[in-house]
Simulated assay, not measured.
Amino acid sequence: MVSFRNFFTAALAFSVPISAAITPAEVVTNIKSITQKSLALQAPAKDISLVNGPLVLIGQGPFPKIILGFSDIVTTATTAIAQMQGMPKEPAGASTDAVFEAFREFVRVHQALLNILIGKAGLFQTVPFIGQPVAAVLRQVEQVVDTIAFMLIDTFEARAADLKDEAGALSGTLTICIDKYQGLALKKRSLRFARREMVAAA
């Protein structure tokens, strides 16, 4: 079962007034837009190497593109969240099924991207400064994805169980990816602490 750790974010989203409720077809369009943005990041993610990864320090290489791409996903998702305010409960039927299928495809594409990044994280055990900016933007992605999933589950109750399953699977992959890159930053702090201990013992 999915664990939504950002109910505060969802609560804030629900407080945003809008002039008219979005339709299920527009929800599908928004989800597909986010899916395409995620798909577009797979190529630069695959290009990450031990040589070009550290170029993030000078704003070059694939990581800046990926971080900017994730920020764009957050912006697009935030707009979609605002547009979903005030949606009435949608009954079982073709519209609800279309929303679920769009969300399932997003989960598939986004998990593929995250799994690429998880694999690439192992290249940078000795260059931990890469971890923090990636982990930071991934936490922002996690917040908006949790909020969208929460709203979809609440609105499209006929597919709530299926949506929870997909959201739970994505949440698990996001957690692993965040931990991998956050772990690089933590390792940096651990190395500093170890050096201080060695100096103190000398």
Results as ranks from 00 to 15, higher is better:
residue 4 F to P: 09
residue 9 T to Q: 09
residue 13 A to Q: 15
residue 20 A to M: 12
residue 20 A to E: 15
residue 20 A to C: 07
residue 22 I to Y: 13
residue 25 A to C: 00
residue 27 V to N: 04
residue 35 T to M: 05
residue 36 Q to W: 07
residue 46 K to L: 15
residue 51 V to F: 13
residue 52 N to L: 11
residue 52 N to F: 14
residue 53 G to D: 09
residue 57 L to Y: 02
residue 59 G to K: 00
residue 60 Q to C: 07
residue 61 G to P: 07
residue 63 F to W: 01
residue 67 I to H: 07
residue 67 I to Y: 11
residue 79 T to C: 06
residue 81 I to K: 10
residue 83 Q to D: 15
residue 84 M to S: 06
residue 87 M to P: 13
residue 88 P to E: 11
residue 98 A to Q: 14
residue 102 A to W: 01
residue 105 E to D: 09
residue 112 A to D: 15
residue 114 L to C: 10
residue 116 I to Q: 03
residue 123 L to D: 09
residue 131 G to N: 03
residue 136 A to T: 10
residue 141 V to Y: 02
residue 141 V to P: 03
residue 143 Q to M: 15
residue 145 V to M: 12
residue 145 V to G: 04
residue 148 I to P: 04
residue 150 F to L: 09
residue 151 M to Y: 07
residue 155 T to R: 05
residue 158 A to G: 14
residue 159 R to L: 06
residue 160 A to L: 15
residue 165 D to K: 06
residue 167 A to F: 13
residue 168 G to Y: 06
residue 175 T to E: 13
residue 176 I to F: 05
residue 183 G to M: 04
residue 188 K to A: 05
residue 189 R to E: 02
residue 189 R to Y: 03
residue 191 L to D: 04
residue 193 F to C: 06
residue 196 R to S: 08
residue 197 E to L: 15
residue 202 A to G: 12
